[in-house]
Amino acid sequence: MRATLSLCVYCGSRSGSEPAYARAAEAVGTLIGRHGWQLVYGGGRAGLMGVVADAALAAGARVVGVIPSTLMERELGHRALHELHVVETMHERKQMMAERADAFLALPGGIGTFEELFEVWTWRQLGYHDKPVGLLNVDGYYDTLLDFLGQTQQRGFVAQAQRDLLQVDADPEPLLQRLEALARLATAPDDYRRI
């Protein structure tokens, strides 16, 4: 892991119906800056993506965006970032974001956010990476999803160990602290992991 934690945030390119979503995105961006971390995200200025990026920049964080060329106009590519990588495909976007990250966090969003969350969570449980994955359940947004995940366990499709790989909280500060601790543990020498 890099000396500075690099947190990949997935969230909506829309703001959603509740002001709580934007407040949470702003809080996450601010915390990233206060902790001296780097934000990696989808590179847009629209919706929650823009809110988290602007808050991180305002708090002094380094911000890296990755956006496909076809979405530069739709998601209003954010040109005030430290790095804005314009790639050809969504696959390239997700791969670069994952490679630049030490941990992942999903905020409220739509099907793109769901897909990104489930992909990195799946990669984690298959052993393709050992980076922690978090879900910020703002204002109960993910309550029904979490209920459904409980059903997948009850019906024998998801093991408890798989479910435990997803860190969930309604409060960004303790969730980010947990992700940081797990990210540092994942890169610690084996002697330290046993302590």
Score class of each variant (00 low, 15 high):
residue 87 V to W: 02
residue 87 V to M: 01
residue 87 V to H: 01
residue 87 V to S: 02
residue 88 E to H: 12
residue 88 E to S: 12
residue 89 T to P: 09
residue 89 T to E: 04
residue 90 M to K: 05
residue 90 M to G: 07
residue 91 H to W: 11
residue 92 E to Y: 00
residue 92 E to A: 14
residue 92 E to N: 04
residue 93 R to S: 03
residue 93 R to M: 02
residue 93 R to W: 04
residue 93 R to G: 02
residue 93 R to P: 01
residue 94 K to T: 02
residue 94 K to Y: 01
residue 94 K to F: 00
residue 95 Q to H: 13
residue 96 M to V: 02
residue 96 M to G: 00
residue 98 A to I: 01
residue 98 A to S: 15
residue 99 E to R: 15
residue 99 E to H: 11
residue 100 R to C: 01
residue 100 R to N: 03
residue 100 R to Q: 15
residue 101 A to Y: 01
residue 101 A to H: 01
residue 101 A to D: 01
residue 101 A to V: 01
residue 102 D to R: 08
residue 103 A to I: 03
residue 103 A to G: 02
residue 103 A to Q: 05
residue 103 A to F: 02
residue 104 F to C: 07
residue 106 A to V: 07
residue 106 A to T: 08
residue 109 G to F: 07
residue 109 G to N: 04
residue 110 G to Y: 08
residue 110 G to A: 10
residue 111 I to G: 00
residue 111 I to K: 09
residue 112 G to H: 07
residue 113 T to L: 05
residue 113 T to G: 02
residue 113 T to E: 06
residue 114 F to Q: 13
residue 114 F to S: 09
residue 114 F to N: 02
residue 115 E to F: 05
residue 115 E to Q: 14
residue 115 E to W: 03
residue 115 E to P: 08
residue 116 E to G: 08
residue 117 L to F: 11
residue 118 F to W: 12
residue 118 F to R: 07
residue 118 F to A: 10
residue 119 E to G: 05
residue 122 T to K: 11
residue 122 T to I: 10
residue 124 R to E: 09
residue 124 R to C: 06
residue 126 L to F: 12
residue 126 L to H: 09
residue 126 L to K: 06
residue 127 G to L: 06
residue 128 Y to N: 07
residue 129 H to R: 04
residue 130 D to K: 12
residue 131 K to N: 08
residue 132 P to H: 06
residue 133 V to I: 11
residue 133 V to D: 05
residue 133 V to F: 04
residue 134 G to V: 11
residue 134 G to F: 06
residue 134 G to W: 06
residue 135 L to D: 10
residue 135 L to R: 12
residue 136 L to R: 10
residue 136 L to S: 11
residue 138 V to G: 08
residue 138 V to H: 08
residue 138 V to S: 08
residue 138 V to N: 09
residue 138 V to E: 04
residue 138 V to P: 08
residue 138 V to L: 11
residue 139 D to K: 13
residue 140 G to A: 09
residue 141 Y to R: 05
residue 141 Y to C: 06
residue 141 Y to M: 05
residue 141 Y to A: 05
residue 142 Y to Q: 04
residue 143 D to Q: 11
residue 143 D to K: 03
residue 143 D to T: 12
residue 143 D to E: 13
residue 143 D to V: 05
residue 143 D to F: 03
residue 143 D to I: 05
residue 145 L to T: 08
residue 147 D to W: 10
residue 147 D to L: 13
residue 147 D to F: 10
residue 147 D to K: 13
residue 150 G to Q: 14
residue 151 Q to V: 15
residue 151 Q to T: 14
residue 151 Q to C: 11
residue 152 T to P: 04
residue 152 T to H: 09
residue 153 Q to T: 13
residue 154 Q to W: 06
residue 155 R to Y: 14
residue 155 R to S: 13
residue 155 R to M: 13
residue 156 G to D: 09
residue 156 G to S: 10
residue 156 G to F: 08
residue 157 F to M: 15
residue 158 V to C: 14
residue 158 V to N: 02
residue 159 A to N: 12
residue 159 A to K: 15
residue 159 A to C: 09
residue 159 A to T: 15
residue 161 A to Q: 15
residue 161 A to T: 15
residue 161 A to I: 09
residue 162 Q to E: 14
residue 163 R to G: 04
residue 163 R to P: 00
residue 163 R to C: 04
residue 163 R to W: 14
residue 164 D to F: 00
residue 167 Q to H: 15
residue 168 V to E: 13
residue 168 V to P: 05
residue 169 D to G: 12
residue 169 D to E: 13
residue 169 D to W: 06
residue 170 A to F: 00
residue 170 A to N: 13
residue 170 A to D: 15
residue 171 D to E: 15
residue 171 D to I: 10
